[in-house]
């Protein structure tokens, strides 16, 4: 670290970070504050659209209407389902990758992480093609005789969940992988030498030590599912609305910006609350054993 006594050094960090700071104040904080304010305005077609008068109308509407309750509940349930599936699939996969070596490991990594670089729209399109009633999944299931009428995946919760797991599970793998990397490579041998079976080593030694990775991975997956837009919109269609698609419809469909803003603010607040409580929980639980 440089010495702080030098007066130049007291100004320099502020100078260096000032472009970023200006950018964030002008283009991040102000828009967010404007949205917050907008969410307290109301919308009246007769009075020419947005009315700049402070009121709680939008929040009252969202929080009391069972239509919105349903949407928030669906989003929450979807997030839980996707998160659980990502944990169940991503954790073992990360562990398997961790135990591989050489060329195969790099190839598998590429196959799992590569899709992260492909737009969500493209990945969702792939599932839409697979899901169609004439899609590959139905055709092959029909062909081997598992089913005799096409199963419906397009515009169903199941379809949305499958696609979202596909979109988000790489984050889970990455997160667990990172905590496996920190694990002492001899830790499993230590367990074995003390008489534990491979399964017990996994259950009682490996999993508890990578728990922070699993938990932070779930947090990422949960937050990203809760605010996912393109996938639920394409695969869920108009009927299976989630919070993000609802806000979109209010904004660009019915043009009720204040209501859309209120929904967005609620999503943000819910996100922040969940993330901070979850972090607190993790910290409390693991502060002693992990730094």
């Amino acid at each position: 670290m440089n010495t702080l006594s030098n007066p130049v050094n007291q100004v320099r960090p502020y100078l260096l970070s000032s472009p970023a700071l200006l950018l964030y104040i002008g283009l991040f904080m102000i828009p967010l504050i404007m949205t917050l304010m907008l969410s307290f305005y109301s919308y009246d077609v007769d009075r020419g659209g947005v009315v700049a008068e402070f009121s709680f109308t939008n929040y009252v509407e969202v929080l009391s209407d069972s239509y919105f309750h349903g949407i928030f509940f669906r989003t929450f349930a979807l997030s839980i389902a996707v998160t659980v599936l990502c944990v169940l699939l991503g954790t073992p996969e990360a562990y398997i990758l961790h135990r591989m070596s050489g060329r195969w490991k790099s190839i598998c990594m590429l196959a799992i992480l590569g899709p992260l670089l492909v737009s969500v729209v493209v990945r969702t399109l792939g599932w839409a093609i697979l899901f169609g009633s004439k899609g590959v999944i139905n055709e092959s299931l029909l062909a081997i005789g598992v089913i005799d009428t096409p199963i419906k995946l397009m515009f169903t919760n199941t379809g949305v969940i499958i696609a979202l797991v596909h979109v988000l599970v790489p984050f889970m793998v990455l997160s667990v992988w990172a905590s496996l990397q920190k694990l002492d490579p001899m830790i499993e041998n230590a367990g074995l030498s003390l008489g534990a079976s491979p399964f017990i080593v996994l259950r009682q030694i490996v999993v508890p030590q990578i728990m922070p990775g699993i938990l932070s991975g779930s947090l990422i997956v949960f937050a990203l599912t809760a605010s996912a837009f393109a996938t639920p919109s394409i695969l869920g269609g108009r009927r299976l609305k989630v919070v993000a698609t609802t806000a979109y419809d209010e904004y660009l469909g019915t043009l009720n910006w204040p209501l859309g803003a209120a929904i967005a603010v609620l999503l943000l607040v819910a996100n922040v609350i969940i993330i901070t409580t979850y972090n607190k929980f993790i910290e409390r639980k693991y502060s002693q054993a992990f730094k």
Binding site: M186, N189, A190, G191, S193, M211
Partner: peptide, 17 residues
């Protein structure tokens, strides 16, 4: 796990949790 040996690893390999 069946050899009944005690091993001390260079990195100790303690169970941190």
């Amino acid at each position: 796990s069946k050899r009944n040996l005690g091993i001390v690893f260079q990195s100790y390999a303690l169970f941190h949790h």
